[in-house]
Amino acid sequence: MTTVPGSALGLDAEPLAGYIGATITGVDLRENLDDVVIAEIRQALHQYKVIFFRDQQIGHAEQVAFARRFGKVTPAHPHEENPPEGFPEILPIDSRRYEQNLGRKRTSYDNSWHTDVTALVNPPAASILRSDILPPYGGDTTWTNLVAAYENLPKELRDFADTLDIKHQFNTQATAGSQRERKVAEANLAAYHPAVRVHPVTGERALFVSPGFTRGPREIRGFSPTQSERILALLWEEATRTEYTVRFRWQPGSVAFWDNRATSHLAVSDAGHLGHERVLYRVTLEGDIPRGVDGRESELVSGQPFYGS
């Protein structure tokens, strides 16, 4: 067990991998935590990129209240029409809904590497996910450290990536004529983001690629679809190298809190085919408009920014 640097209260953090991830202990998320504890959790988040809490007995109200200590909480999702009653901020990650909306059994909507909702011009700053119904085994989630991925690129490749702008948009993956397909078309979210973004708090540079939001014709500004495909494939391979990742096994009472500006994640698709159900609940914090290393901002292509309250 280690102590978060600069921690006044000695917040305990157990690192889980060499580049990313730590379990935080000694915190009860049901409590109204004081500002010092919140500041230490925020510091741990910036240091480890994703932090985990175990054995937490919280529901929707406590999850939303905890999230509000770190910023404005957004509505559940730009495409969500049926959040839990009374909790418009909560997005169910529910295998039962995916079977209904997508026509096939799966434990997560998006089983590819992605950073949350990067089709927005202001993607969420962070996400908080808590477990509810879990399979007896399988259904883990993996995160990767996009800062480490960038910092370990050869300088020539870093310099090249610094100049790129990538188009992010939604691909429905939904049944034709379904509510999901209609919502995606109505929102029509798309944005150009710098391939390398500067973190607004830490100043770190992160490789900002999100395969889940660049399906279909690949598009890097100034390059053909074929060229874009090959460049992105190289960047994705670097971003998801095993040494930059941490894999988390969900248990009852588990909560994950990740910096969406410095990570991508992957829901491991190894439980749905067994018929197991998996239900988790997510909230997201309002994000800023990403900036590249030269100060250029992401550009809105279509849709609207996503604000919290």
Rank of each mutant, 00 (worst) to 15 (best):
E80V: 03
E81M: 14
E81F: 09
E81W: 07
N82W: 10
N82H: 13
N82L: 12
P84W: 04
E85K: 13
E85C: 01
E85V: 11
F87E: 04
F87H: 13
P88E: 14
P88G: 11
I90M: 12
L91V: 01
L91N: 05
P92E: 06
P92Q: 06
P92V: 08
D94E: 06
S95K: 07
R96I: 08
R97D: 07
E99H: 10
E99W: 05
E99C: 03
Q100W: 08
L102N: 11
G103V: 10
R104N: 08
R104P: 00
R104H: 15
R104Q: 13
K105G: 00
R106H: 03
T107V: 12
S108A: 15
S108E: 11
S112C: 01
S112F: 10
W113Y: 10
H114S: 02
H114V: 07
T115E: 07
T115D: 04
T115H: 06
T115A: 15
D116W: 11
V117D: 07
T118V: 14
A119M: 13
L120T: 05
V121A: 08
P124Q: 13
A126K: 01
S127W: 05
S127G: 10
S127T: 11
L129G: 00
L129A: 00
S131N: 00
S131H: 04
I133L: 13
I133E: 13
L134D: 11
L134S: 05
P135V: 06
Y137Q: 06
Y137C: 02
G139M: 09
D140A: 09
D140I: 01
D140S: 07
D140C: 05
T144F: 03
N145R: 03
N145G: 08
L146K: 06
A148G: 03
A148K: 10
A148R: 07
A149V: 08
Y150A: 02
L153I: 10
P154L: 13
L157P: 00
R158D: 00
D159R: 14
D159C: 01
D159F: 03
